[in-house]
């Protein structure tokens, strides 16, 4: 009896909180569905603007956007990067995962054979200002440049001894490890399928729409 009345008491107290949570949740879902396309388009434009920085010699207007099925069975967006004369220069692989505070979204630049990381760019993060948000800085991002993709990257707190070691940011070990984990997971998931795709370039056409201003000629 007392249990039942106590439960009724909880509901009498909390109904407003529950109702507001439902109403606000619904409202936010609406806002997200209206704005998500616009936000995704903003991110795509930023991606195109940093492609030359991620893969040297790239011509962003020649970049082809592909959908490749990863090991986890889900189709993921990748960018096949070409120079202005049409030679295949490398890849840009978008990836995301949990950071210290919120989700972190990165772009991984890879060479044409997918054996080396050629660059890293942080597209979105909400890490601690003054500590974790230094993952967006050139100092940290450059530590990934030239790293091999055959093993997984490890974060160390001293100067790297081995080829697959990345030095953590001081005071932001979790943010540093998160970025490394995101890169590792994305490569483990996508490297094989991307290599297969690269080996049979005839599949290029049917898979996905190409860049809006790409392949004009």
């Amino acid at each position: 009896m007392s249990d039942l009345s106590r439960q009724r008491g909880y509901l009498r107290d909390a109904w407003l909180v529950i109702l507001l949570a439902l109403v606000f949740g619904g409202g936010l879902a609406g806002v997200q569905s209206v704005l998500s396309d616009k936000i995704a388009e903003n991110k795509r434009q930023e991606t195109y603007s940093v492609i030359p920085e991620l893969v040297s010699g790239a011509d962003a207007t020649k970049t082809v956007e592909l959908l490749i099925e990863g090991r986890n069975g889900k189709a993921a967006r990748v960018y096949k990067v070409t120079a202005s004369d049409g030679t295949h220069k490398g890849w840009v692989l978008p990836a995301d995962g949990q950071g210290f505070a919120d989700r972190v979204e990165v772009l991984i630049g890879l060479d044409a054979t997918l054996s080396t990381i050629t660059g890293l760019y942080v597209l979105e993060q909400k890490e601690t200002p003054g500590l974790g948000d230094y993952i967006t800085g050139e100092t940290f991002r450059s530590r990934f440049r030239g790293k091999p993709t055959d093993g997984s990257l490890t974060v160390v707190k001293s100067d790297p001894q081995a080829d697959n070691e990345i030095r953590a940011l001081t005071g932001a070990t979790i943010s540093s490890e998160s970025v490394a984990a995101i890169v590792n997971a994305a490569l483990a998931n996508m490297k094989g399928p991307m290599q297969e795709h690269g080996a049979s370039p005839s599949e290029d056409s049917g898979l996905a729409p190409t860049a809006p201003e790409g392949r004009g000629d």
Partner: peptide, 21 residues
């Protein structure tokens, strides 16, 4: 709790709006 819920909702709307426009 109700204040925080209300504030968080509008902050998220502002954040998404800035990210879009």
């Amino acid at each position: 709790l109700v204040f925080t819920l209300t504030i968080a909702t509008f902050v998220t709307i502002a954040d998404r709006f800035l990210a879009a426009y």
